[in-house]
Every structure is written in C-alpha cells, then in structure tokens.
C-alpha cells in the first residue's frame, strides 16, 4: 500500500497491510498536524502532491529500505488537501522479524520522504497569513537528519 489520497488515512488498513506471520515487529509512524510551533499558531496545513511522481518516489524509497533492512513489508499513505491540527498527514508502517530493523527502517523511510517525495505544504497561521513551508536547511536532499532537528513547521513528521 503506497498512495497519496485526499481522504482521511485509515490507520488500521495501513497497519494491516504490513502484518504477517513472519513478522515479529510492526512499527507504525503517524505524522500529524501540530498546532503550535514556537510562538506561531497553525490553523491549517494544505498539502499538495505531484501525484504520479510522489507514488513513484514512495515505491523507490520503500524498495531501497527493503535493500537496507530485512523487511517483511512497508506501507505509506500521504494525505493531501486541507488538514487541521491533530489530523494525520502521513502514515508509515513497517514490519520485520525483529523490532530494531522496523524502527530503523521506519525512521529512514520518513526522513527520506521528507527529503525527496514531491509533496508540499502551505501553512495557514492564526494571524491570517499563509505561506509555503520551506524545508529546514538540514533536511535538503542527501542530508542526514536527527530526530531533534527533523521537525518542520506545523507537522510532527
């Protein structure tokens, strides 16, 4: 299951897509819209995708993750359109025989989506302004990111 959708993400369906008898671990990551970033309040994020390339990118990223870690399965669904604080923007599910591989691969897949997959978000703020979110300099293609620096404006992932 690798897709971009305007519908609310069915978290159970994404999780079930990677479950199997061979897996001893299933890791699910949800990126959700964060209301407060520093002193700014986000009222909504509008996500836009170049869908054909985004789906191709998700296929390539999960294929590469399967080369790096012994995964049973991986699934990614990214939502587009207008989302409000608390809404789920992206779900990544990974299964493997043991938990370490599932945790590592899940983080790598999410970091790599943020660097490569052609999806953008526009942030609507409490003061009425709206602006396309620019990625952090540390998150440009090819850069390593740590969990401490991986937060973009208004979204947890």
């Amino acid at each position: 299951m690798l897709s971009v959708t305007t519908e609310p993400i069915d978290v159970m369906a994404v999780t079930q897509a990677v479950r199997s008898r061979r897996a001893g671990a299933v890791v699910l990551f949800l990126g959700t819209v964060r209301e407060i970033t520093g002193s700014l309040r986000t009222t909504a994020l509008t996500y836009e995708a170049y869908e054909a390339m985004a789906v191709a990118s998700l296929k390539e990223i999960t294929r590469e993750a399967s080369d790096r870690w012994p995964l049973e399965a991986a699934a990614v669904v990214h939502r587009t359109g207008r989302l409000e604080p608390g809404d789920i923007a992206v779900a990544v599910a990974v299964s493997s025989a043991h938990r370490r591989e599932a945790f590592e691969a899940g983080q790598w897949i999410m970091d790599t989506i943020k660097q490569h997959t052609p999806i953008w978000k526009k942030e609507m703020r409490g003061d009425g302004s709206a602006e396309w979110v620019h990625p952090d300099p540390g998150e440009t293609a090819g850069a390593e990111t740590s969990p401490d620096t991986a937060a973009g404006q208004g979204a947890e992932s």
Partner: peptide
Amino acid sequence: NQEYADDGAVLHPGDDVACFPPVSGG
C-alpha cells in the same frame, strides 16, 4: 518523466516535465 533531473539532462519531445520548489511533505 517523474525523476529529478540535473541542469545538464537533455530534454526530448514528449518528456513529462515538472518544475517545483524543494519538497516539504510529512
């Protein structure tokens, strides 16, 4: 054609070309 292209990549008739800023999904 749905892949990032660098400045030197040669274009061909019928290519599917898109232009956009750095990505910010998630």
